[in-house]
């Protein structure tokens, strides 16, 4: 565990907490993509199956349980409790266009052809693109509430911090996982446009509005 990794994990946790607080306090999930949340739940479930096979540390197991349970709680809030506020018409991204290529890619490019390893690889590929329905929703409506922007910023920062962690681990421990590094870079690149808008608009107190 190094500082970048810890900061990345905490940023990830912060993103999820911001999201849950936003939904709970405003009693609304307007502006949020349920499809992205379904993809994230799928990511955590397929990646953390090793919870039952491999023990790494208390921290590791605890965070995995938190990520799985909070993602399921978010889906429950969006599709059941606050369903009436869910912006279904704008959340029209076809997630099969992301899931199917990730399934194929994980079957072809993986480090070991076992069930757990392929599912882990699938989750890494899927995570890199799971935010696309949310970004698509923001681009369709042309704006995002500032709380949604904070959520996206924290979520995007997490993988960017992981990249620093991977660089550190490569030099300090000689450890690297090419699949995770490649997908993590793709994931971070997808957020770049949003990061730019966040820094130039939201941090200056303006609403995140896309240029017409």
């Amino acid at each position: 565990m190094n500082l970048f990794r810890l900061a990345g994990d905490l940023s990830h946790l912060l993103a999820i907490i911001i999201l849950l607080i936003k939904i709970w306090k405003t009693r609304s999930c307007a502006g949020l993509s349920g499809k992205s949340q379904i993809l994230f739940a799928l990511v955590y479930i397929t990646r953390y199956l090793d919870l039952v096979t491999t023990y790494i540390s208390l921290y590791n197991s605890f965070m995995k349980v938190i990520f799985i349970s909070t993602s399921l709680a978010t889906i429950y809030l969006m599709y059941s409790k606050f369903r009436a506020t869910y912006d279904k018409n704008h959340d029209s991204f076809r997630i099969e266009f992301l899931i199917i290529p990730c399934v194929i890619l994980s079957l072809v490019i993986n480090s070991n052809f076992t069930v757990l390893e392929v599912l882990w690889t699938f989750s890494i590929y899927l995570e890199s693109v799971a935010i696309l329905p949310q970004l698509f929703l923001v681009s369709k409506t042309g704006e995002a509430e500032s709380i949604t922007s904070h959520y996206l910023f924290a979520l995007g920062s997490y993988r960017a911090l992981y990249i620093l962690n991977w660089i550190y681990r490569y030099y300090a421990e000689g450890h690297y996982e090419l699949i995770a590094i490649f997908a993590g870079c793709v994931q971070t690149i997808l957020y770049c446009d949003f990061f730019y808008l966040y820094v130039t608009k939201v941090l200056k107190g303006k609403k995140l509005q896309l240029p017409a």
Partner: peptide
């Protein structure tokens, strides 16, 4: 030492 198959990151 962590086995490379045991992914120790989240």
């Amino acid at each position: 030492k962590v086995d490379p198959e045991d992914h120790d990151e989240l």
